[in-house]
Design a binder for these strands. Structure first.
Lengths: 178, 178
DNA sequence: AACTATGTTTAGTTTATACTAAACGATTGG
DNA sequence: CCAATCGTTTAGTATAAACTAAACATAGTT
């Protein structure tokens, strides 16, 4: 293939690598997605190894993660033992999926911790012994409440955005100037 | 202070630590913010070292980052050489600030890389030699265009959210159920 | 001016993460 | 049934981030 075209691809892949890292994924994952995204035809694991320049094992695990996130899809061809991959090109779909994934895992868990702390403090307010403790406990309770409230709002906001995007993806209208 | 109250605080701080890590900041940073957030009075660096359990140096650098992000504020008291810190409690304000910060730094840069790759490819389409190269180059160009378009939309969306939040913070109305 | 209290910087260490190389397992073809 | 071709798993390694300990800088106090 044309050298300059390869250079352009590599530059793009490098950019994807950066973005991936920026969003908290591994660099290789972004690079691999970039390579798949720029492949005109379904691309095999070996070709990815060649294009991205990481080991087969790394490509294997990253590709699995990408598939779990719905960012790529596996295409098996009859009479061919290789797995081929194509890129999901609906980015909003990807965003939705990733947001859902992240909400479920760590985000909820963190929220729960805040809730637990709040319950701990509020239980304490009941059977408090000294006056000073009550004062501090009430302060704690208020602050924790405020934070939990914020996280709930954030949760609602994200849910709203996902819903909006669901509408958009059904091609009602493009609200965000694409 | 009451042991159970301390436990509740530590549980909360641990939660903040997780959230911080989840959002791509250091764990200590979240913990430190948590400690400041739960302090009824402005809190000094030494007290933070005691409560969070990391070294003075780490507290110092993390505190500086927190201040840069507008998550905490320094309060110097007359006749006291220590610096004291209080927490910013307007979380939406913090979100706006962090979003702006992130957009400027890495996000823009990544976008630029995609744009550059696209220009490279499009220049190539003009002076192309073989037929096959043109075909691939056009494919690349289309895909890169689609991705850049998406990032622009995302940018607009974030800008819109910031604008919405600016309105809300001026207490027009609370749109997100707080 | 020396000493003390305080925050910052730095050099080195720890730690978590992601990768490599290679063994492994499984499937297909000869 | 053996060999070849894949993808996966694993044990070890490299690397980047973040922390510690300690030196340092600064300013206030005696």
């Amino acid at each position: 293939m044309n050298t300059e075209l390869v250079q352009a691809r590599e530059h793009f892949i490098q950019g994807m690598s950066r973005i991936s890292h920026f969003w908290g994924f591994s660099k290789a994952m972004g690079a691999i997605y970039g390579a798949i995204y720029l492949s005109p035809a379904p691309i095999s694991l070996d070709e990815l190894v060649a294009q991205v320049g990481v080991s087969k094992g790394a490509v294997s695990t990253n590709v699995r993660t990408l598939e779990r996130l719905g960012m790529i899809h596996k295409r098996i061809q009859l009479g061919d033992r290789k797995d081929y991959y194509i890129a999901e090109t609906d980015f909003w779909k990807i965003v939705r999926r990733v947001l859902r994934e992240r909400e479920q895992s760590e985000f909820d868990q963190a929220l729960r911790t805040v809730g637990e702390s709040m319950v701990l403090v509020e239980e304490l307010i009941e059977g408090a012994d000294t006056e000073m403790d009550v004062e501090t406990a009430v302060f704690y309770s208020d602050r924790m409440q405020a934070m939990q409230s914020f996280f709930n709002s954030l949760d609602n906001l994200v849910a709203m955005l996902i819903a909006l995007e669901d509408l958009r993806s059904k091609s009602v209208q493009n609200l965000f100037g694409r």
